[in-house]
């Protein structure tokens, strides 16, 4: 064994590399075909999911009676949100415990639909209780309420957590979404 053997080693290495390369090229083509099929299928499922969601909403929460409550956050430096509890006309309709990921999404400008339901035309009262950690790392629990009039058509209510810069306290606002 001498230089010839060494060359054989090298040659073998190159052959193996070439074989792996040609396998990789074949696999690449297969993957692209599969990827395209997957994309088409995912697109069709998305469309179906949209149709199903629309059906569900129209069936369960018709536009005439629908009421939805949203939670949003504007800055929110003085309050770390844990949960929100909603009472509608004296009846508890939602108790939502927020994850860190959700709170982060709220901080970035996302809006969370915390409740969707149906209400009759007329006057209604909504009470929201916010729980979390307030200034100086203390447990914090505050309520806010709104009396609103429900007419024909959907009604959207916003629960906004904001900062009151003047006294370095959080502020909780319940209002009809305009």
């Amino acid at each position: 064994m001498g230089v010839w053997d060494l060359k054989r080693f090298l040659f073998l290495g190159i052959v193996v590399l070439l074989a792996v390369y040609s396998l990789a090229v074949g696999a690449e083509n297969d993957f692209q075909t599969l990827d395209q099929e997957t994309q088409e299928l995912k697109s069709a499922v998305l469309e179906l999911n949209r149709d199903l969601s629309m059906l569900e909403e129209e069936l369960l929460y018709p536009a005439n009676t629908q009421v939805a409550v949203f939670v949003s956050m504007d800055v929110g430096e003085y309050f770390a949100l844990d949960s929100v509890e909603i009472t509608l006309d004296g009846k508890n309709v939602s108790n939502y415990l927020y994850t860190e990921r959700e709170v982060n999404a709220l901080h970035r400008g996302g809006v969370h639909k915390i409740f969707i339901g149906n209400l009759k035309v007329g006057e209604h009262e909504l009470v929201a209780i916010f729980t979390g950690i307030g200034p100086h790392d203390r447990d914090y629990r505050r309520g806010a309420s709104l009396t609103f009039s429900k007419n024909i058509g959907a009604k959207y209510v916003e629960l906004m957590i904001s900062d009151r810069e003047q006294n370095l306290q959080p502020e909780f606002i319940v209002r009809e979404w305009e």
Partner: peptide, 8 residues
């Protein structure tokens, strides 16, 4: 609000 929900 529904746009905010998408962002959320």
């Amino acid at each position: 609000p529904h746009y905010g929900e998408v962002l959320f």
